[in-house]
Amino acid sequence: MLDSVLIFSLLALSLGLILGYAAVKFKVKGNPLVDQIDAILPQTQCGQCDYPGCRPYAIAIASGEAAINQCPPGGQEGVDALAKLLNVETLPLNDTYGETKPEHVAFVDETLCIGCTLCIQACPVDAFLGAPKMMTTVIEDECTGCDLCIPVCPVDCIHIKIIPSTLTAFASNIDEVKNG
């Protein structure tokens, strides 16, 4: 009788120690669900969802605070992917948050730019290159097309530029393929 009690309490103690150690050692940092949601979001960082960037929106979705259909750049595909991840019914994209636009980047008309640097401050991904009273330009490869720089420009010299399809990035339409 005493043996069993001893054996089991020792076992419980050692297992408890192992579990306690594992809980400290392998502690999951951050919320893994937030990372998964963040991976689906388009990282435009445009703030159209009313959150200051994609990650804050991901945190809001994970906590159940925000709906999954507030991301216009992600489009309906993005909403569907989020619904699949979270195992909920998919929703139509809420158009009060804006509409899905074709892929584009910002473009600075350099003849008009006065070098006020307001766009540099507005850019969520630091895609602008410039300095006070110097001509500013956009690093096209890093621009996400969030359009946050357009309203802040005092001389309206920022336009959107649609990215043209090129030969190297061409994918035909599946229907064309099916019809031969």
Binding site: Q43, R55, P124, T144, A169
Partner: peptide, 28 residues
């Protein structure tokens, strides 16, 4: 050919998204 092109575009887009995420985090 079609699926290969889709894959190539997806990879390219994913790279772009990763850069945007990294830059956003870095800006913060």
């Amino acid at each position: 050919v079609f699926t290969k092109a889709l894959h190539a575009n997806k990879v390219k887009e994913q790279n772009k998204v990763n850069i945007a995420r990294e830059r956003f985090e870095y800006r913060k």
